[in-house]
Amino acid sequence: MASEEAHVHHWEWSYYPLILVAGIFFAVPLGFAAFFVYGSGLMSALFIGLGVPLIIWGCAGWAGEGIANAENETGWALTGLPIFIVSEVLIFLSLFVSYWMLRLTAPEWPPPGSPEIGLGIPIFMTILLVSSSFTYHIGEERLEEGDKAGFIKWLYITIGLGALFLLMTGVEYTHLLGEGFGFSANAKSTAFYSITGFHASHVLVGLGIFLFVLFPALSGKISHVFVTGAGIYWHFVDIVWFFVISQIYIW
């Protein structure tokens, strides 16, 4: 906070990082382990019930502070994000490498018993995601012109498209699971659900970020750095999708 007046004589602090970590701690490791390791749905629900509100509180408070102060208006955030994305790229890369290893060493592919996965849904999903990148871009242009209402309108559309994308993932999963193609069916199901699921989780995070752009924007607070950053992330998720569709669906 002290960026400009470096010599101010008080220590900087913030509640929200700790709250957010505590939330993550309860919701993810404890919530997961309670259910999957110790078989207690109740405990799990309790942990998640405790963790998720903390996460939301932490994020909301943090975003509030972030938008309120000048630190985030430096260009550093927009260097930091691409650096972070490097590590995201490597996560996806190692998932793909695992997939290639399984696929290229398999005696036959797809392994026997895998249903045909149609191209209809994924193509529709591609259209959704690509257009959402465009709609967000249009929104950013509106903002540039000073048209906040226009920005918010296009942001709504983007979020809608993203949500529809997730819905389609759900539709596709239910369909495949219905055909008995469960997670543990074979190497193909393993790779398919892991990679598409992991990508979908990134779409979900992207939507979450958009919400933290949207809510402040509704009350008139818009941070340009935040808006651009959210966009960069969204475009990244979009680009990853092309690898997903070419490697998983088309190849």
């Binding site: 695992s98 399984l102 392994p111 997670f183 543990s184 074979n186 190497a187 393993t190 892991s194």
Partner: peptide, 13 residues
């Protein structure tokens, strides 16, 4: 925990 078979050679891992 989810039953995938990345590392299970009996099922293509």
């Amino acid at each position: 925990y989810l039953g995938t078979t990345f590392f299970n050679p009996e099922n293509g891992g």
